[in-house]
């Protein structure tokens, strides 16, 4: 009896939703752009920053500290890996490349964004066809 209760408690704790894995999560913007840039081939730190800025039309300006924190995290997750070091003018340039797991994660994020965009586009088109909704008259007073 006691054991049944104790084991049921343990099993209940282990089965709580927060313990489950594989929950979809939105990708942060630096992660998205780092993976996007690396999809084009191996890059070193500064090239990553510049290309992310260019591809995002200037919206994403990665700081060096942010970039290496993201690369560290993505390496831990197995989405990015080192692709060798080169010394140019006495400076170390560390190259990174995307892994298959990283490409799959990016593909999944792109699909999610496309699905969101389709829904938004569809609603906007409906609105254009029907015309804008009449303004609501508010009876609220200040």
């Amino acid at each position: 009896m006691i054991f049944g209760g104790a084991n049921a408690l343990a099993i209940a704790i282990l089965l709580l939703p927060e313990y489950s894995h594989g929950m979809s999560t939105e990708m942060r913007e630096p992660t998205f752009w780092v993976l996007t840039v690396l999809s084009g081939g191996r890059r070193h730190g500064y090239a990553l920053i510049e290309e992310a800025r260019s591809l995002s039309e200037g919206r994403v300006n990665l700081k060096v500290a942010t970039l290496y924190a993201a690369l560290d995290r993505l390496s831990t997750q197995g989405w990015v890996e080192l692709d060798g070091d080169e010394v140019v003018d006495g400076r170390l340039r560390r190259y990174f490349r995307i892994t298959n797991a990283g490409a799959i994660a990016l593909e999944s994020e792109v699909s999610r964004l496309e699905a969101n965009a389709r829904q938004a586009r569809s609603r906007l088109e409906t609105r254009h066809v029907q015309g804008p909704a009449p303004a609501q008259i508010s009876g609220a007073t200040a």
Binding site: G45, K63, V64, A65, D85, R91
Partner: peptide, 30 residues
């Protein structure tokens, strides 16, 4: 070494000899 190399590349491209306040703050926060 890789971070210092990247900082120097970025500053050279921007015509600076030392990182700006935003980069320095990001390094402290990081």
């Amino acid at each position: 070494d890789a971070v210092v190399g990247t900082l120097m590349d970025a500053d050279d491209a921007a015509g600076r000899s030392y990182p700006g306040a935003a980069d320095r703050s990001a390094l402290v926060a990081g």
